[in-house]
Structures are given as C-alpha cells and as structure tokens.
Design a protein around this nucleic acid. Structure first.
Lengths: 343, 343
DNA sequence: TTGTAGGCGTTATCAT
DNA sequence: ATGATAACGCCTACAA
C-alpha cells in the first residue's frame, strides 16, 4: 500500500499538519522538524496523492482535449503546442479522440465537466448542432480550434481564413491561372469554409473571372476522397490549371491523382495546400501552402483556458464567442508555378 | 457553484445515501424515491464529482501515456489504438509528450504514480538508463511500446524485429540487390535496433554477402538527418542499389535525397521503410514497407494494462519483462524493384 | 427501503 | 512553530 501523509507523520513524530507544511513549503517549519519529515518521506517513498489534493483544493489542473484523430499531422501539430504550453504551466491534458462522431464529442464534453477540468479545447472536422448546443451550455471554459458556426458561443482560435484564401487565389491568378479548382471540406455550416470560399470568390471577381462551379469539390479533408474527386475531373476532361485545397492532405490526394494519371505538378497543374503540416515540405513535389502556426495555435488556446480558469472575468470572458486571429503566410515551394497555357 | 450530492438530497427530500444509491444503480431503492431523486438531478443538472469518487473508491481509471511527439504518424497510429481501446473499456488517458527527453519521461512517470493511474504506456525514441531505472521501480503497471533494453523489467509489445529485418533483406536480395544500405536509429542499447541488425546480417550472411559498414547509417528516426546522410553517400559516390530504413520517415528522407539528386526510385535505387504509417502509401513513389499493426499494438497494450489493473496476478504479471509479439508483413508498393545492375 | 456516520488523503483554520 | 479538526464530495457498512 502506498504511504500517506499520516504514515509520514507517525514515522517522523510530528502531526500531519506539519508534514503538509513541509510538502508545500509554504508556512514556516523548524529546521529540526523539516529534517525529520524529509527523512521519513524519503524512507517511505511518499508521494502526495493528487486526487485528494484536487478534491480539497477544489480545483483541477487538467485540460480536456477532443480531437477527431491522432493519425493526422494537422492535429498533431496543434497538440504539440497544447502539450508544451500546458506542461509548462503545470497543467496536464486528458486526451480523447472522437473519430468525428458528434455523439462522442458530447459524451467527452460531459466527462470533462464531471471531472471539473480547468477547461476543454475541442477540434472537429464538422460542427454538428448537437455539439454546438452542448458547448454553449458547458459550465467550464471551452475553446474551439479553427472552426466556427453561427450560434457557437465560445472563443475560437484560427487564422484569417478569408484573407488566406484571398491571397492564395491572387497568387495563382498572378501566375496566369484562371481555371482554378477549389477543394473544400464539405457542404456544411462551417464558418471557416465559408470564409475561405468568400476569399476565393472575391479574388476571382476582382479579376473578372467567373467561378466555375464544376471545379468546386468537397473532399472532406480526406486524402482518398480528394484523390477520387480529382480522378473524376481528369476523366471528365475537366482538368483545371491550378487547384487550391483547403487542407494539405487534400492537396496530396490531388497531386497523387494527377501524378498517377501522367500529369506533371506543377508543370501541367499547380496545386496549393492549406495548413503546412510537417509532411507538406517532405512530399515531392514539396507543397506550396498557406502556413498556419499550428503550434502557436495550440499554445494560444492553452493560455486562454488558463486565463479563464484563474481569471474568471479578467481578460478573456468565457463563452463570449470572440475569436483570436493568428497570422498566416504563403510559402512557395515546388507544387506551384506559372500557368503554361497563359504563356 | 456546481450541485453536489447533498443538494440533490435536500431538494428531493431523501438522504445522500439514497441519492448515491440511485446514481450507482446498485442497491434497491423504492420507485418513489428514485423518481424524486432523478427529478432533482435533472433540475440541478447534477454531475457526480469524479475526483471525489476516485478518492473514496481508491482507484483511478486513467491510463498515463508518454510519447516523444505527436507530430508523427507512427505514434499517432498507436495512440489511436490506445484511445479506442481505453475508451471502450471505460478508461481514459492522460497524455504527455517527452520530446525524447529522459528527464521529462521520469517526471511524467512520477506524476502518473502520484495520481495512482491504472498504469502507463510509454514510447521512447531512445531508452536512457535513467528511464529504465525509474520504470523498474514503478508501483503501477508500465508497458513499453516497441522498444526494449537489457535490464528493462516491464512487458513490451512489438513485432518480431529480427524476422522483419531478415525478411525484407531477403526480399531485396531476391531482387538482385547486393549493395544494401541500412538506416538505423542510433548507436545505442536499444534491443530492437540490435535485433533488426541481426536479421539484416543473417540474411546477408546466408547469401555470402559481406556487410559494408560504410552503408550502415544512423538516422535517428529523423527525416532531415536521413536526408543529409543519404546526400553524403551520394557525394561520396557510394550509392547503394537498395536501402532499408528502419522507419518510414527515414525512408522518405532517403527518397527525397535521391530524387533531389536526380536518381530515380526504384529504377536506380530501391528504398524500403518500416512501420507503414499512413503516409507511406501516399508518398510518391508509394513506399514498400514492413507493416506494423500500429493500432493493434496500442489496443494490446491497453488490454494488458487493464488486465494488470484488475487482475493483479491473474494472467499478465506486471513487470515480468515478457514481450507480446504481433505479426508484421511486407507490403510491396512502388519504391522497390529489381536491381538494374544485376540484369 | 432508508438514514447515520465513518472514512478516503489533503489543505487550511483555528487554537495553543 | 505546531497540532487538532473541520471541510472537500462521495461511498458504504451498519442501524433503524
């Protein structure tokens, strides 16, 4: 059986109060007592029970995390930021994967509430109504990463998706492209997808280019799905000169489809991705992307949670729906270039 | 303030004992009381406090996980298995990233002990003595993934690394390769690296091929490092006809170096990886690999922890150093082929 | 069937 | 400087 504070007290001949004092180093303890206690702690290999501690302190330094999957570097990147920041701040994280299932999201949200976690950071592929409602009624701080929806009442951290899409579209137009495809997540209520689409639309409009609806596809952030969609375009003989994918994995799916069909990237078709997961620069051709500061985003979310956890009012207001915008940038690598038809 | 069991008792006019009974569904409660209590719970939106519960129940359904990084699909794959299995078994996981730092590993191991976790599953890049000692003295079950060291006294789950390396080497030899490079992790005490090397050595020996030490490199499981190492080989004019990388990311680093220098894969050089992370089949050329059942490995580890947690003796014996061997298989894709020099 | 009361391991407030 | 002792929220004999 593990030693308790009482065992230490008995063995060192002092009261548990004194033992507690030396453990927490707060109050003043005579050098003699401290020595004895330390010795007993050492001998018994005593470790304070965090569970009991949390109970009496009425607080919990655990941050709950919900993520669709761990087999994706996008979430991995953010998680690294979350983990680093929280560990530095003395918090620890409890991780759950939802597999994108809204039912599970709600269940985990419940579990975190029951545990009185300091807060929760959630990432989803798609935002279901069920989840939105649950989040809005949570009694602990919640932060949504990189996604939003009308009606969602919690802080959000992301980049400016409108500008990012606007910039990358302009970049392509500047390189002579006019037949530009857009691979989006899915037809849903996701606000960021909508913003990206607006940016795309705006850039095109500013150059008097009409949007070709047949070139707007929904790849669901999946490599395989995007692969098939691009293959479809190829079979239809409807190959664009450039494609913007709103996630790197979709960009890779697109590239693979092109490559496998004998097209060259970027000579025949330019492809740009979104996010800049580690893989983006290691894929060949290395992907031109909109870089998102994944690690920073994770870090930022943790700081917000903690500030809400202790601040309670000062600074960030929980559930006020504000969104923190981090800066992005376009990184040009090998997968994009001049449009040959324009030459 | 959150409602407690006492609030529910007051509001429903029964004692806390009765409330506790309906919450846990164990003892018999009159239908009338149950109704009242349920109603009060509903109205107060009461959620039992898990912290208090854990304290009094003297148990914890949390499994601690230590992993070097989350930005790598290898760990991501295993973690998905861990998460699925534990969530299904009603356990949850507390995740920490060590960044490969042994000091951190020990610190987290300590933290899990203080929390009386059900057990811990640890993954490391390299096994330092410090960590080994700490693991051996842990009072809760520990399982090491995919790595071992003489003196490590805890169960391990992995594939048969000797056979895997043996098979893949034979595969290459059968395709006419004789100048085969091996990219290992690092020169350390890691037992699996040693086993892989033995398998490699054995296959070569059986075909009367001498090992060329200048073709054995240490890429530390890193893409960049492997890239540089391969570049070095190219500059020296010491290019093998095939290379075996003991991780997929190293294989990718090798391929990139080759590709960037104008070599073709697999026409000029065959490259095979280890693990089969999701990316392996999406990289171009798609990687020929030794497939490890990552998800299953995670699942298996969780089952072992849980069985130790409740079994305490029955079945798996904690810290007995046994290792569970899962089956691997060679998956042939695009990055390997016949040796042209042999034709 | 239901209620009372004694822990679980700590922290924190009193006295002393 | 130190030691009782009352919480913290819950579970569970033991009584009633």
């Amino acid at each position: 059986m593990k030693a308790t504070i009482k065992d230490v007290a008995d063995r060192s001949g002092v009261s548990i109060a004194t033992v507690s004092r030396v453990i927490n180093g707060a109050a003043v303890v005579s050098e003699k007592s401290r020595k004895k206690v330390l010795k007993a702690i050492e001998e018994l290999d005593f470790k304070p029970n965090q569970v009991a501690r949390n109970l009496v302190m009425q607080k919990n330094t655990t941050i709950g995390i919900i993520v669709p999957t761990l087999g994706n570097q996008f979430y991995g990147g953010i998680l690294n930021g979350i983990e680093d920041a929280s560990s530095e701040m003395g918090y620890d994280i409890m991780l759950c994967t939802s597999g994108g299932d809204s039912k599970k999201e709600v269940r985990y949200l419940d579990a975190f509430e029951e545990r009185h976690c300091a807060g929760v950071i959630i990432m989803t592929r798609k935002l279901e109504n069920e989840t939105v409602q649950k989040i809005n009624s949570m009694e602990i701080p919640v932060i949504m990463m990189n996604r939003n929806t009308s009606g969602l009442k919690c802080p959000t951290v992301s980049i400016d998706n409108f500008r990012a899409a606007y910039e990358v579209t302009n970049y392509l137009i500047d390189h002579g492209h006019t037949r530009i495809a857009l691979f989006r997540n899915s037809v849903d209520i996701d606000a960021f997808g909508v913003e990206q689409y607006s940016g795309f639309e705006r850039a095109l409009a500013e150059h008097d280019i009409d949007i070709d609806r047949s070139l707007v596809k929904y790849g669901e952030f999946k490599i395989q799905k995007s692969y098939e969609l691009m293959k479809g375009l190829i079979e239809e003989g409807n190959v664009p000169t450039a494609v913007i994918a709103t996630s790197d994995v979709m960009a890779i799916g697109v590239c693979n489809a092109l490559l496998d069909s004998g097209y060259r990237v970027p000579e025949d078709v330019s492809v740009v991705g979104f996010n800049d997961i580690e893989l983006a620069k290691y894929y060949r051709p290395a992907l031109t992307v909109i870089h998102q500061p994944l690690k920073v985003m994770g870090d930022e979310a943790v700081q917000m949670i903690i500030s809400m956890d202790k601040g309670e009012g000062r600074g960030i207001i929980p559930n006020d729906g504000r969104t923190v915008i981090l800066s992005h940038r376009l990184i040009e690598r090998q997968s994009s270039g001049k449009c040959k038809e324009a030459e």
